[in-house]
Design a protein around this nucleic acid. Structure first.
Lengths: 364, 364
DNA sequence: AAATATTATGTTAACGTTAACATGGAAGAT
DNA sequence: ATCTTCCATGTTAACGTTAACATAATATTT
């Protein structure tokens, strides 16, 4: 493993100066045809590869962006990462990916390490509410974008699903199907304020003049086992609901397993709807869940495109940070009484989407 | 966005030399208690963060490893990445992740970029058979490990599933269930040699003295649509098989949709088995597929642990590159006639595993 | 007390690249 | 013929860190 050749080795071999080689490689200034030819030959001979680290030290740009999520292997996150990768690669950026496991400690360590690695930008689904490390990133001029969640008080762009409106739509659909008593199972979040999903749920009830019973909202740890337990609590309590609204696909498997074990017929005994979709095979699952298909890949594309803009154009923001929400699409299926017709491949393809940017509606 | 402070700024503020600060930060040599105190104060005051880029230029270690896969959002790959991340983070390495989309061109570009980025190691699921860029990586002393696939002629470690034996087991199970005519749908690979999966299939047939009919092996593009088409071809041909063996979960949804559309009863009309599992919800899918649960997360852990060893200990290999295969676990379910009892959460938990290392069996 | 090790620090020169400035010559304008 | 512009190239000094060597002061051994 001998020392790899550097720019000076190439320059010597080609009989020119290092700068001429640098200029040739970067196209940053014209280079004469003879020199070009000599340099090309020298690079070939020596198998020279530019050292991006040295370049980064000088230019203060690494071409790396960080993506920090709670669980990179969830089907939704995995798709979002793919979307981010797609855009980043096209813009000559590489992805440093971290899995925080929703741990504040791990997130904090990642933020520290990534800042030292001089990333050019960061996409973060925060697990901690600690503003200080994020403010430090922003103060150093590193564009920071929130994905899916945000930290109050930190002035940064946000891109996420349209939790409130989608939740409204799912609830409205259940009401249209005749449900009047609806239980909700949702992930334990900050219980101080209602989550956007609960807000959307509430809004749909209000709209239909259905009384709002907080006892019908159950908070659950994001695990199959706890969702199973929650569903049990709901079904074994005094008054069974007409429908159960599952606010996160991570909870769906527990609910479905409970129904299977206890022979609860869906939708006859109880209707079911899920906030988001269950991945590639969701239409093959029995009972077939009515759900809200969220554009996970597009989410990645949007957040990465916005990050690219922030990196290149900076923050000329007359109206402060952007807030972009991507609406999902309600898929009505068996669990709310639909016959469940055949699904074709095209259903999952690209479709028109309304993207809300800072409150305005824009067709994308 | 003012210039961030560097080691010299800290040194000046603390009234010592830059080297003393460096030694303090890295613990590379003892530092006096007074100096320590001054440095700590200076670092706090200036909000100093070491610049890893400058460090890397000097030490020739970036602390980054690359992971290059065909489809990072597939449930299996996503889990494997999580396993890799887990081990890497514990060893203070960060992950640069690339999605090659199975494109030779994109893979080549990634290899080029990543080499320039001076990664400390690479985990690659190759899409191209081109040896040259890989040999160059190895020649530069960067540890390279193959994941899931490998490139013939390149001397590098390999970690993957135990395709041949697992495939043998699935086939054996179908034979035990009475199937004698079995069709296989598998992904289009190099058709020159049989894939390990086809080999395992063949071996099981031979063992049971069942004639081997190459016409029963269909090669298929990895898409729902093409799998659907293939299944149609099989079921509409002269002699229907007793069973269809699906060699990749990416093809399962197409097959299942075909059965659903054409009202083919599983397992009555035709048994089904899949090489690998369909993810978190596989037991909720109807028909419930008999499949081989592959240890995707563990695969990531193993490959990352081996990479860590290679980075730290180098290549003292008396017996050449290692070849590690992780066996899966056959899950017998409805699609081969099982009643399909209730599944508990614990089934997916950790279990004893036999890991084959260079032909020897080791219990892990 | 002298010799030797150990501790705590500093100085200089890299690592491989590019920014900034400098220069000599050729082409075009006046 | 002279002035200007532009092209092609070179020189020097950074970017922020650590390796290697040097040194002075203190502690330990003989």
């Amino acid at each position: 493993m001998r020392k790899s050749p550097n720019l000076h080795d190439v320059a010597r071999e080609a009989g020119v100066s290092a700068m001429t080689v640098s200029r040739f490689l970067n196209g940053s200034a014209p280079v004469g045809s003879y020199a070009r030819q000599q340099i090309t030959r020298a690079i070939e001979n020596l198998k020279y590869r530019p050292n991006q680290i040295a370049k980064s030290l000088q230019t203060r740009k690494t071409g790396n962006i960080a993506v920090l999520l709670g669980n990179i292997s969830s089907p939704m996150s995995a798709l979002t990462i793919k979307g981010i990768e797609n855009v980043s690669f096209g813009n000559r950026y590489n992805l440093l990916i971290g899995n925080t496991e929703f741990s504040e400690e791990k997130e904090r360590r990642y933020l520290d390490i990534l800042m030292q690695k001089q990333i050019d930008g960061m996409i973060l689904a925060p697990s901690s509410k600690d503003r200080e490390p994020l403010q430090e990133i922003i103060d150093r001029g590193i564009p920071l974008l929130f994905l899916d969640r945000h930290v109050p008080g930190v002035q940064a762009d946000y891109v996420g699903f349209d939790f409130e409106n989608d939740s409204y739509n799912v609830t409205e659909h259940l009401i249209d199907r005749g449900c009047r008593t609806i239980s909700v199972i949702c992930r334990r979040a900050d219980l101080i304020n209602d989550s956007p999903q609960v807000k959307g749920f509430h809004r749909a009830l209000e709209r239909a003049s259905i009384p709002w019973d907080r006892q019908r909202i159950l908070y659950c740890h994001p695990s199959t086992e706890d969702a199973y337990r929650c569903m049990g609590e709901i079904m074994e309590s005094g008054t069974r609901p007409d429908a159960v609204y599952i606010a996160s696909n991570t909870l769906a498997s527990g609910v479905l397993r409970y129904c299977k074990d206890k022979n609860i017929l869906i939708p006859e005994d109880c209707m079911l709807a899920c906030f988001d979709s269950l991945g590639e095979f969701d239409d093959l699952i029995r009972p077939n869940l009515t759900c809200n298909e969220v554009p996970a890949f597009d989410l990645g594309v949007y957040v990465a495109e916005l990050l690219m803009r922030r990196i290149h154009d900076g923050y000329e923001r007359p109206d402060g940070p952007q807030r972009i929400t991507l609406p999902g699409k309600l898929l009505i299926r068996e669990s709310t009484g639909d016959a469940g017709g055949p699904r074709t491949g095209s259903e999952t393809g690209a479709r028109r989407q309304t993207v809300r940017v800072s409150g305005e509606a824009v067709t994308g």
